[in-house]
Nucleic acid binder design. Structure first.
Length: 327
DNA sequence: TGGCAATCCATTACCAGTTG
DNA sequence: CAACTGGTAATGGATTGCCA
């Protein structure tokens, strides 16, 4: 007898098949049923109809959750393959806790710092650190040293809890100790290592030389709107795009005073900045730089990625990369 | 209990191919 | 050729588990 209920894995697998297979093709349901163990063609069709119904309800504003048969049935050490006693038990506990987290749709205990998480909330959204907060952090670090996050929180960054400070510190030290070449790194707030540092450009775009020859240059780095970092670039008029964690996307229109080679880091720029959102209305003086994803576009990209596999697979991309290196 | 390392996961940056 | 697209990698904040 076939199993009427669908596990999460079965459901995911089914949805992936839907994304891959063309339902207009003859015998598509047979093909799907053949690939989902223990399900009949009828059950697969029924499940599809239920899925369509769910989508309708979701679109209409209500969110009834589909019923999944819980995987914790038979959740034993043997089944999970955790043969080794202590580590296996630890892993099992961890997996179960993870399962509970996911299975209960974000139901979680209070973290003790006023974070109430209800049924509809996922993990608390991160609040990005501002440059000012980071500088206070550095000042506090200098004063109290590594480890005294409570004092740093209490006396320097009142807007952050000790836990947040510790988490920030962890990332800060990882960044500082990273052996990764600076050329490949993205600009980060953690690049500011002194409490009085100024905003600076950390990396020039790889096609900067080409653009510079055309009196254009693209620079990637941090700058906050309205800031006018020092510029040293060579005597020609240029358009510069700035981007970074603290800016959205800014465009610089100024004079190249002393153009550094494209691999030169820490080049300084100054001038007037415009948010990119206004760039398109700036007129023909402005030359377009590298494309920037609009958040909405990217959101939909991400949504599609989460929703199911794409027809352009990872292996396709690997192939592209391989072709590229061959050229 | 608090610090630390590891992990999770959402977001963002970047890149190359495609398209108009 | 600029803009768009779709993919991966990097990043950062929150959370968890371990241990002194």
């Amino acid at each position: 007898m076939e199993n009427e209920e669908w596990t999460r894995e079965e459901n995911n697998f089914f949805e992936n098949l839907l994304a891959i297979l063309n339902l207009d093709e003859p015998k598509s349901w047979e093909k799907i049923a053949a690939q989902v163990p223990g399900k009949t063609v009828e059950q697969v069709q029924k499940h599809y109809e239920a899925l369509v119904e769910d989508l309708k309800l979701i679109e209409s504003g209500s969110f009834p959750l589909p019923h999944y048969r819980e995987e914790k049935e038979g959740f034993s050490k043997e089944v999970m393959g955790y043969g080794e006693e202590t580590e296996g038990m630890k892993k099992e506990t961890k997996v179960m806790k993870k399962d509970i987290r996911e299975g209960t749709e974000g139901m979680r205990k209070d973290d003790g710092e006023g974070t109430q998480v209800n049924d509809h909330q996922q993990r608390k959204k991160g609040t990005p650190w501002t440059e000012d907060e980071h500088r206070l952090f550095l000042a506090g670090l200098k004063h109290y040293g590594k480890g005294d996050w409570r004092s740093i929180s209490r006396n320097y960054i009142k807007s952050r809890t000790p836990t947040q400070v510790a988490s920030h510190a962890q990332k800060y030290f990882i960044r500082r100790n990273s052996s990764r070449t600076k050329e490949r790194r993205r600009p980060s707030i953690h690049d500011i290592t002194g409490a009085n540092g100024s905003a600076h450009v950390t990396r020039i775009n790889s096609n900067a030389a080409e653009l510079a020859s055309n009196n254009q240059i693209c620079i990637v780095g941090h700058a906050t709107q309205g800031q006018a970092p020092n510029i040293q670039m060579g005597g020609r008029r240029a358009q510069v795009y700035l981007s970074g964690p603290m800016s959205n996307q800014y465009k610089y229109n100024g004079i190249l005073e002393n153009l550094h080679p494209p691999d030169h880091h820490q080049s300084m720029v100054s001038g007037s900045y415009q948010p990119s959102s206004t760039m398109d209305t700036m007129g023909s003086d402005y030359v377009h730089g590298p494309s920037v994803h609009s958040p909405s576009n990217h959101q939909s990209t991400m949504h599609m990625r989460r929703a199911g596999p794409s027809h352009s697979s990872a292996s396709n991309h690997q192939l592209r990369m391989h072709k590229r290196t061959e050229r």
